[in-house]
Amino acid sequence: MRYFSSTLVGLVLALAAGSAQCGSVEPLPVREVAPGVFAHAGAIALMSEENAGDIANIGFVVGENGVAVVDTGGSVEVGRRLLAAIRARTAKPILYVVNTHEHPDHVFGDAAFEGSGAAFVGHRNLPRALAARGPFYLKAFRKIIGDRLVDEVRIVPPTLTVENRLTLDLGGRSLELRAWPPAHTDCDLTVFDPATRTLFAGDLAFVGHLPVVDGSLKGWLANFDALAAVPAERVVPGHGPLALPWPEALQNERAYLSGLANDVKGFIARGDPVDSAAKAAGQSLRDSWMLFDAYNARNATAAYAEYEWDP
């Protein structure tokens, strides 16, 4: 955390300066990672009032007829700044807002795009995940990012769901959406731009930030071969640096998750209880990751509960 504090302070100062100067919304910094494909790198940090929930990578793709947004950030403030970044580059209509899964750092900015006429797009399981967890997230994150940011968050259910695959036509380019079996969550969706071979992997790809298991570790491990086979040149991971080579960007994540699974299976076989496993599983891989202590024990606990029923 300390590693990032200076970056955060810098960001906050820049934000304050920006809003003081013009009074309008300061566009989110974005990088054109491929022609017409823009991405913003969120901080590798936990959501907080100070970072306004800006911890996930989000972006947009511009076609001839309009724009598709991929995730909206961890607050409406971040969503508005993403919208400002889009408007700084194109006046074309926003046709789609795609949510890669239901976590607050990816969907809390959705309300900034309501009323834009865009279709909200998600995995077939996203409606039930948002219905079940949305109210819980709004309550829990009030303590984490504060009243001011949470007050304007609205959970926006998708108007278009992806059963398995769906192609979105942006005019002159199309995006290939794919709904995955339970892995990071039970509603993971990836967005692939074949024109530039750029993949928005959502949180199926964590780089630097410890992967978080909130769906199925078994499912995640089972998905890897198919995920790595997506014919992308570069990936925008859900967390981590933008535009990394694909599928190499998956290597560390795969090593951590399979190492965690092996550790947990070993603890179960030896008859060690879940709390011992939570303390020790995955620890040999801690130096490769940021936010390890925030998530590893929880991952191990979830993995234990998943694997202990195996014959």
Partner: peptide, 10 residues
């Protein structure tokens, strides 16, 4: 607790 829905106690 790591997971409030699964808190081990002994």
């Amino acid at each position: 607790a790591e997971d409030a829905a699964l808190v081990p106690m002994s």
